Computed example of a mutant assay.
Amino acid sequence: MMTPYNVPRVKSGIPGLDDLIQGGFPEGTTILVTGPTGTGKTTFGIQFVYKGAELYNEPGVIVTLEERASDLRREMRSFGWDLRKYEEEGKIAIVDGVSSVVGLPSEEKFVLEDSLNVEGFLRYIYRVVKAINAKRVVIDSVPSIAIRLREEKNIREILLRLNTILLEMGVTTILTTEAEDPKRDKLSRYGVEEFVARGVILLDLVEKDVELKRYILIRKMRETKHSMKKYPFEITEEGVVVYPSGEIY
């Protein structure tokens, strides 16, 4: 009798989510987290890396292309997350991809130069991952990669190359992107991101009783049995919390 194939799982660090995806993300895969502005995509990604370091002793890299590293650290302290502590322990590395673009000096250890091309960008991410032996990566966000590299027309090729490198390194990665109108099935800014990623998670808002409520929908997750229902989630004082047994919209 054949033994069932068990896919190694990486705990998300997000309460309630792993119950919906057979215990965690498939190890070494790339997950796209998409949704409109203000739905918690950045928090979701940072939580994945932070909890990896805090709870599972898994080093992680945060590539921030929309906020300076110093601003990100300050914002995450509202959840009680001390990113600096794990940076000093070598468990988290933050890549500042903003300062050089806006012409501000940076005192960060890892800083993306303004003049990087695609190859330089990919090599730099590879080097930082290897520097701390990272197991987790979050890149926030895909549109910022395209704009920064001035390569919006070639974004599919860039994402394919990025995904190949990430898979070769064996890291589990979250990419964030904007969904202009998910209710009309426009799941991403460029319409290609969801085809490159092996998993797609949508964070969105729905009006209920004259109030906007957040919900999560797992649109795709390879090697995983998952529901296609919408589940409520909240951004609490301790980060993102999913309610798998809550009311389904």
Results as ranks from 00 to 15, higher is better:
82 D>N: 15
90 G>C: 09
104 L>P: 06
97 G>L: 10
118 V>I: 15
115 S>N: 15
93 A>F: 10
79 F>Y: 13
123 R>F: 13
95 V>F: 04
129 V>K: 00
112 L>M: 10
123 R>N: 14
92 I>L: 02
84 R>K: 14
69 A>M: 09
113 E>I: 00
122 L>P: 05
72 L>D: 00
97 G>F: 13
108 E>P: 01
83 L>T: 11
85 K>R: 14
75 E>H: 13
109 K>N: 01
79 F>I: 05
84 R>Y: 10
89 E>F: 11
89 E>P: 05
125 I>V: 15
90 G>F: 09
122 L>S: 08
79 F>V: 04
103 G>H: 03
93 A>D: 06
70 S>D: 15
115 S>H: 15
112 L>T: 03
102 V>M: 12
76 M>E: 10
88 E>C: 02
111 V>F: 10
113 E>K: 07
127 R>S: 15
119 E>L: 07
94 I>Q: 01
84 R>N: 07
85 K>S: 03
71 D>K: 14
102 V>E: 10
75 E>D: 14
111 V>C: 06
121 F>H: 09
82 D>S: 15
104 L>K: 10
115 S>P: 01
117 N>W: 04
82 D>R: 15
102 V>N: 05
98 V>K: 00
114 D>H: 12
107 E>S: 06
87 E>S: 01
90 G>A: 07
90 G>R: 07
114 D>P: 00
106 S>F: 07
100 S>H: 08
100 S>K: 14
84 R>P: 00
77 R>I: 05
71 D>W: 13
119 E>M: 06
82 D>V: 14
81 W>I: 01
99 S>Q: 11
75 E>T: 09
103 G>S: 02
72 L>A: 02
70 S>M: 10
92 I>E: 01
75 E>F: 10
96 D>S: 05
100 S>G: 03
128 V>E: 03
70 S>W: 12
85 K>F: 08
116 L>T: 08
93 A>H: 09
92 I>D: 00
122 L>N: 07
113 E>D: 08
103 G>L: 03
98 V>C: 00
86 Y>T: 01
113 E>H: 06
86 Y>W: 09
114 D>C: 04
118 V>E: 15
70 S>K: 14
